[in-house]
Design a protein around this nucleic acid. Structure first.
Lengths: 329, 329
DNA sequence: AAGCAATATGGAATCGATACCACATTAAGT
DNA sequence: ACTTAATGTGGTATCGATTCCATATTGCTT
């Protein structure tokens, strides 16, 4: 690998001049520039980003911490982030927590050691240690998916979307509406969405039976089991089923189809996420579109704002959503 | 950000000693070590990976070039890669070509400038410029998905799997088997899979009508259109339909259901990819599982081998596959 | 008691870039 | 013709780590 020194020698100039040509700043004569450009091409010179970062304190890299790489949501969000950042000359460095909270902190340190200029966290929990680690951090930081106190956050409108889904059932005449949620460690999905459901039920003076509230773990299988529980082990069978993720909703759908329970005739179904899957199951699943790509893009924009100085306080941004009603209701 | 110098001062030792403690090599007295460890903790010191990389010429990072981030296949492969590399102390740096061939070369340079220790390319084409760029590269390189000449490659068994799918149709009595492929720029998917289909047909002396060979672009919509074409604009209607990706197969399925054409009664259907979708559509789609995670893992292992010196020639590895027959046939 | 290996520590060079300062040379303004 | 500004170029310190070499101390062996 040739270095800037080699290029300088070949072009018959100093390293300083080569640097000037590379970064297009300072005064360089036409001939000198030409000789440098030529030398660079001939030698296949590629500047070392590390040396540059070390000297300038800017790496041009944004770290993105994902709970899991292989989910549709994460993919879409990353796409949005990538698009926006690439357009502004930044690269992204992805890390994966495999859903382990302790790995979030570990990854933040890892990214810090690599001198990333900013960090985006697709958050799944609101761990105290995590908040402290972030507070100690001296670089731009944006969380997506959970509202973290003291941290610029972009969140989906979990409450209102869940509220609307529930009301949409109610407006169709449903009264016995069951709920498939997730554990409360995931605040946005586990707590806020449930609250939206509960409040909508309360607003219409509909009782919520304890046995109608089930919990899964985001998987198809857990949705299947929750539906089974709801349809087999309850005194009052619900006529509508609201799962807080599409995967669980589709798991539930699997159970209903297996038992030949008509959807939406006997039981109506709603999910959240607008996954590819939701459109292609039978019947097509009603769901909520959170516009994940836009979310990623918005998040990236916030990081860029912080990067370019417009620090603009710790913002809280709540995103749009859209109910997609299909044949499952 | 404290540096090694600050830690040294705090602990009352030299930078050298701190480095020794950090890397656990050389002689360090018990007390000195203790003071250093304490200082590190107190100051929240995080070593600069850049300085280290610069000095040692090892970054501990493997670059992964993806055609697109948000596909199920890519996600799974990355998962496999990540798992294997993380276990060996490596991080991955993802880049995205957005399916543009020229971006592959650009990204290789980008990764090189970041001193990655190796590069994995999820290849979609066999561009000559690309091959030259790789040949010039002096770091470990593995391609996944396409067999690139002169490059260690891991490939799916496109030929035999396509052959088997076709024979599976034939063994069920089908003779009029249509094919939905993709353009030949993607050699593995566009050329090899088609050859598997053609050879299987030839082996059983079945004629292949020109009009039975359609092409899509990996999207649902293109699968839908191809099916429409096949069922509306042909003289002889096929009784079986083999799409080289699940997405196109499911697009085709959408058309068939819309026209109330019974699957598999009137038309049988096969895809490739073992996507989540394939299991949850109605009827469940028959497909081919390429074990993407294993593929990623295997690819990572090859990189690791090259990294640890066992250079072992330019290997060519062909992966296993498995036909999953479901109700669509 | 002398010699030598093992242990312990620090100084200084180095990796490859950038940036500041110094110093020419040329052009422009009065 | 002389000052001042613009242009062009190179030397050297610096970023934060590692590594080689030199030196000091200790413990063992004969």
């Amino acid at each position: 690998m040739p270095t800037i020194k080699d290029v300088a020698k070949r072009a018959g100039v100093s390293r300083t001049t080569v640097s000037r040509v590379l970064n297009d700043n300072g005064y360089v004569s036409h001939e000198a520039r030409q000789r440098v450009v030529e030398a660079v091409k001939e030698m296949g010179y590629i500047p070392s980003a590390h040396a540059k970062t070390m000297r300038t304190k800017r790496s041009g890299v944004i770290g993105v911490i994902l709970p899991r790489i292989s989910t549709e949501t994460a993919s879409r969000v990353v796409n949005g982030i990538e698009e926006e950042l690439a357009a502004n000359g930044y690269q992204i460095l992805l890390t994966n927590t495999q859903l382990k909270p302790e790995k979030e902190i570990e990854n933040i340190k890892l990214l810090k050691s690599r001198q990333v200029d900013g960090i985006i966290l697709l958050a799944t929990n609101r761990n105290q240690d995590l908040l402290e680690t972030i507070a100690d951090l001296s670089i731009p930081f944006v969380a997506l998916g959970q509202e973290l106190t003291g941290v610029t956050s972009v969140v989906y409108d979990d409450y209102n979307s869940a509220f609307d889904v529930t009301e949409s059932f109610i407006s169709k005449g449903h009264q016995d509406i069951a709920f498939i949620g997730v554990p409360e460690t995931d605040h946005a999905v586990g707590v806020v969405r449930k609250q939206g459901y509960l409040d909508a039920m309360a607003k219409h003076h509909l009782p919520v039976k304890e046995e109608w509230i089930q919990h899964g773990n985001f998987s198809f299988e857990s949705g299947y089991q929750a539906a089974k529980q709801l349809m087999e082990d309850t005194h009052f069978k619900p006529t509508a089923l609201f799962a807080v993720t599409d995967r669980m909703a589709i798991g539930a759908l699997g159970y209903l189809k297996e038992k030949q329970i008509d959807v939406p005739g006997e039981v109506a179904l709603f999910g959240i996420g607008a996954s590819d899957l939701s459109l292609h199951v039978t019947p097509p699943l009603s769901t909520v579109d959170y516009f994940n790509e836009d979310a990623g893009q918005k998040t990236a924009q916030l990081i860029l704002e912080q990067l370019t100085g417009k620090v603009g306080e710790k913002e809280k941004i709540k995103l749009n959503y859209r109910l997609i009603k299909r044949d499952s209701v």
